[in-house]
């Protein structure tokens, strides 16, 4: 009896102490100058940007949820199910995903004053980072001149492509190729017939090609150049008609509990200062005059028609998944 009573009292005290300690340490987001950011931007970039923002705005804090686009979608859907978006700022990796969020009336309605080109802006969000979908080949494998080369016999040993339901860049690529009169969705069926394999993320593509599992792959430039710089035996190429440019937009949540700091953050990322930090961390900025990572001279970039794509996205994904599976 006594053992029991004593034990219960101990348990209660201990539990209370630890629960409160835990709560203090980890439940944030409600502080006066603290915001919650949902993003798919790479760790190597998001960390320095947040640090620089906090340095420039003392007293602020940024709670971060970082995941690939697919996971981010699920997270936001879960939020909506249980009472509404919990983020103050959403920073996506492609305009299609962001267009989805604005269509659901989750984000938008405000953009900062910035000289980022109008091509990367709408009334609801502003593109603050660029992803370039490029080709990567293992050392010694012929470099593709055009995207269509990847369906040729030189690459029959294996081309890795990222999964558009996971990675926004891959979705942008799918959008470009499917809507281009020279390629169409047939490009993917030809790739598949030529032995192409779907992997998960652009990093997976780089890893697979660097290790020689695949001869070539489609991936994002920043990831490929980072591996090449570190010494991976790969070549990066920008096949014609050009690398596919996908801009990553940032937007204010309509549910923002701390709109002031949220706007400050967005403005900071879109500012020259913020764009410079972003560029130094290995991502491509959208603000002109800020130099980013490697980009070959005369490199050409093509852009998908985002407005047209926003209506056909689901059909495209379905058609793609018919080929490569879910």
């Amino acid at each position: 009896m006594t053992i029991r009573r004593h034990g219960v009292r101990c348990a209660a005290i201990l539990a209370l102490a630890l629960l409160s300690a835990c709560g203090d340490g980890s439940s944030g987001g409600s502080g006066a100058k603290s915001i919650t950011l949902y993003t798919c931007v790479d760790d190597t970039t998001i960390g320095p940007v947040i640090d620089a923002f906090k340095k420039a705005n003392p007293g602020t804090d940024v709670e971060l949820f970082r995941a690939p686009t697919g996971d981010l979608n699920a997270r936001i859907a879960g939020d909506v199910r249980s009472g509404g978006l919990k983020a103050d700022v959403v920073w996506a990796c492609d305009p299609l995903t962001m267009a989805d969020y604005t269509a659901q009336d989750l984000v938008g309605g405000w953009t900062p004053k910035t000289s980022i080109p109008a091509d990367y802006r709408t009334d609801d969000y502003v593109g603050v980072a660029m992803l370039y979908l490029v080709a990567v080949t293992h050392d010694g494998v012929p470099v593709p001149k055009a995207w269509s080369d990847l369906t040729g016999p030189e690459y029959a040993a294996g081309v890795a492509i990222p999964d558009p339901s996971v990675a926004a860049s891959a979705l942008g690529g799918l959008g470009y190729f499917a809507s281009s009169p020279d390629y169409g969705i047939d490009f993917y069926s030809t790739l598949k017939d030529n032995g192409a394999t779907q992997v998960s993320t652009p990093d997976d593509v780089v890893t697979g090609v660097a290790e020689g599992t695949y001869d070539a792959g489609i991936t994002i430039a920043s990831s490929a150049y980072a591996a090449q710089t570190a010494g991976s035996p790969i070549e990066v190429s920008w096949p014609s008609p050009g690398a596919i440019g996908i801009y990553g937009p940032i937007a204010l949540s309509k549910n923002a509990s701390n709109a002031t700091t949220a706007k400050d953050f967005i403005s900071y990322v879109a500012s020259k200062e913020g764009q410079t930090v972003l560029a130094d961390s290995g991502s491509y900025p959208t603000l002109e005059g800020v130099s980013g990572p490697t980009k070959p001279a005369h490199a050409r970039v093509v852009f998908p028609d985002w407005t047209a794509l926003s209506t056909s996205k689901d059909d495209l994904l379905a058609a793609y998944q018919n080929l490569f599976g879910g």
């Binding site: 995941a67 697919g70 996971d71 979608n73 699920a74 997270r75 936001i76 859907a77 199910r81 339901s165």
Partner: peptide, 11 residues
């Protein structure tokens, strides 16, 4: 279903 999909049926 929970972490990758925003489809209500997946939930």
């Amino acid at each position: 279903n929970l972490s990758r999909s925003s489809d209500p049926a997946a939930f």
